[in-house]
């Protein structure tokens, strides 16, 4: 049992889009330094949960606390200060295609004037090396990179400002299994090195076991299970076990129109 205060605490998080209730009272604690993986099928509310935490979507009800402070009650400056301490790897990397790779990697540092443009090239080379890319990649445009390289550059951008909370949205989606394992390895390495708290969302079980220390399953907008990521598939919870094993038969029924 954890005795420390959670780094992130969600209580009763609710979000509705029109008639569709996407989040139906999500409760979740993420401890400092923990690698939390949120699992769930498509449309189950995983991405909306992360976007609510990051302030990209305003929830209808509930609270989001980070380090004990209610994010939803924060003013603009406090919110910006909070974002300064977070990093995010988007599903499709979301690199700025009008900027070269080195400027993408150091975007936050340049925007905050923490480094000069001359220093940014060296810093980008240093961070790119941490994700296994050569310094010469820094001069390329994002559209010259393969999917795996884009993910690595996205990871480099997420960690360049050395955040203490990092979010990963489907980090291995669209990658071959080997590249997926490489990206997972890099995620584990950088999170460990930074001592950061990581929240990942995925439906890739192999990836979930590799990058997560703890896992939570979201189903129909609610957290239905939390436990050790290593236990996935053998949890005793029929929803989680069906999902982890990818079985067609079970309590989770796909809604198919006939």
């Amino acid at each position: 049992m954890h005795t420390t205060n959670p780094k992130i605490r969600l209580r009763g998080l609710t979000k509705r889009f029109g008639d569709k209730l996407v989040l139906d009272g999500v409760d979740l604690d993420v401890q400092p330094g923990q690698g939390m993986v949120i699992l769930g099928g498509s449309g189950s509310g995983k991405s909306v949960t992360i976007k609510c935490i990051l302030g990209l979507i305003q929830p209808d009800a509930g609270t989001i606390e980070i380090d004990g402070r209610n994010v939803l009650a924060m003013g603009r400056r406090d919110r910006e200060a909070l974002l300064d301490r977070t990093g995010m790897l988007f599903q499709n990397a979301a690199l700025f295609d009008s900027l070269p790779v080195w400027e993408n990697v150091c975007f936050k540092l340049l925007a905050q004037k923490r480094i000069t443009r001359a220093q940014a090239r060296d810093k980008a080379a240093e961070v790119l090396a941490q994700v296994g890319l050569a310094a010469s990649v820094g001069d390329l445009s994002p559209n010259e990179l393969s999917g795996g390289m884009q993910k690595r550059v996205g990871l480099a951008r997420a960690i360049a400002a050395e955040p203490d909370i990092i979010f990963f949205d489907e980090p291995t989606t669209g990658l071959d299994p080997i590249m997926g394992a490489v990206i997972d390895g890099l995620i584990v390495d950088v999170v460990e090195r930074l001592g950061a708290t990581a929240v990942s969302i995925t439906h890739d079980m192999a990836s979930a076991r590799r990058i997560g220390t703890k896992a939570a399953m979201i189903h129909k907008g609610r957290i239905v299970w939390t436990g050790a990521a290593s236990a996935l598939g053998e949890t005793g919870n029929p929803l989680v076990d069906q999902f982890a094993r990818g079985e067609r038969e079970g309590p989770i029924q796909m809604e198919l129109r006939k």
Partner: peptide
């Protein structure tokens, strides 16, 4: 969204 998460 990425811009927002990069404090911009």
């Amino acid at each position: 969204d990425a811009l927002t998460t990069l404090s911009t």
